[in-house]
Design a protein around this nucleic acid. Structure first.
Lengths: 209, 209
DNA sequence: TAGATTGTTAATCGATTAACAATC
DNA sequence: TAGATTGTTAATCGATTAACAATC
């Protein structure tokens, strides 16, 4: 692996992985960068350039073996790690993420769910029982989760993030409005659905002119 | 307004808007590009460059008036348009989006909710009643929604998108796994939460080496 | 006025695309 | 072998950063 892969390249990897998964589902076992570029709407050159950051996965005159490339990208992303993950906040959003996201296929294993609301404690979601947020410190002693999904209101997100940082969390997936900045270099993915919606508004507006 | 604004700039606008909103909430009424850059973790140069794509909103020697800049960005994004929007799919994700996203503050007004499941029809969510998906065509005759939020499984997303396109939809906000490509140049925001999770996995994995 | 900070041009940096020799 | 397509270098393009004159 070369020195430092740019984040732009890394963010395209899951997309390649997704398209390769679709090809697999359709029993297509070889693909050229040209064919893939047509499907994905990016250049063949970029695909080859991106993949060659990690190694030569293709074969001249043939293209890429779909299953092999799919597996290799899975390895690059680390999807086989099953890093222990917890979800904090079981409103509709937290529940939706748990039920539809298939953590196991994306590098993680859901090991705990927490909420402040006592009425939700004991609830079972996909085999994991909701605990009260006060159990967090105790839970860390035995389970050492690596990432936490923050599906809580903005006001709670900051304090909880600090608490998680002190407990040694290694990554955050933040859905609360407002960016989370930690003191340490821990990776944080701030998902801003509102920003995405406003971008769509701009684009609609622009076309209407 | 200059010729063509790059998507990179546009995607930063909601973020500026968000930070300015926070400043407003804290009764801060002026900010320099330097101060804002420190808060946001980007360069002051970029902030000035971005804003000047749309006009000169600051004042030399002073900085930017927070409320004025906030309002101007709102205008640029078109947030005062209240474009009619519909949500398709009221699982946990659809419900979460409706309840937490505040469409009215982000350029849209929720005018309809649809689902295939008859048991959900008649349900009232934030004042809007869920209708059966079969009512879609009839609904368009009177309401002409501009955008549709697709919070349905991947298999349903494609066919529904085609149907919406035929009805004259002008934008899609897609949450189903798998990109949606329409024939026409209609803007589509494909939100891939799974991709974001896998990116986080890569970053955790990378640090562990 | 002096100091601060913008608006804007120029320089740099990085990312994308093109080209083609290597090779299956 | 001939044809196809990769891996990789070089060229281009675009985006970010730096610099500074304009000006409040």
């Amino acid at each position: 692996m070369k020195d430092k892969i740019s984040l732009a390249v890394i963010r395209r990897l899951p997309r390649y992985y997704r398209y390769l998964g679709e090809l697999l589902a359709n029993d297509i076992d070889k693909i050229s960068s040209k064919e893939l570029s047509a499907r994905m709407g990016i250049t063949a050159s970029q695909i080859r350039q991106d993949l060659n950051c990690f190694g030569g996965f293709g074969q001249q005159g043939y293209g890429y073996n779909v299953r092999y490339l799919h597996d290799e990208i899975s390895n690059i992303l680390g999807l086989q790690n099953f890093y222990p993950a917890i979800v904090i906040g079981v409103g509709n959003l937290g529940t939706a993420l748990i039920q539809h996201l298939n953590f196991e296929k994306r590098g993680f294993k859901l090991v705990g769910i927490f909420d402040v609301k006592p009425s939700l404690v004991g609830l079972n979601i996909t085999g994991v029982t909701v605990q009260h947020i006060d159990e967090l410190e105790h839970f860390f002693e035995t389970h050492r989760p690596k990432i936490a999904v923050l599906a809580v209101p903005r006001s709670e997100a900051g304090p909880i993030a600090d608490r998680l940082e002190a407990l040694g969390i290694e990554g955050l997936w933040n859905f609360s409005n407002g960016d989370i900045h930690l003191k340490t270099e821990i990776p944080v993915e701030n998902v801003h659905l509102g920003d995405s919606l406003m971008t769509l508004c701009y684009r609609i507006n622009e076309r209407g002119k």
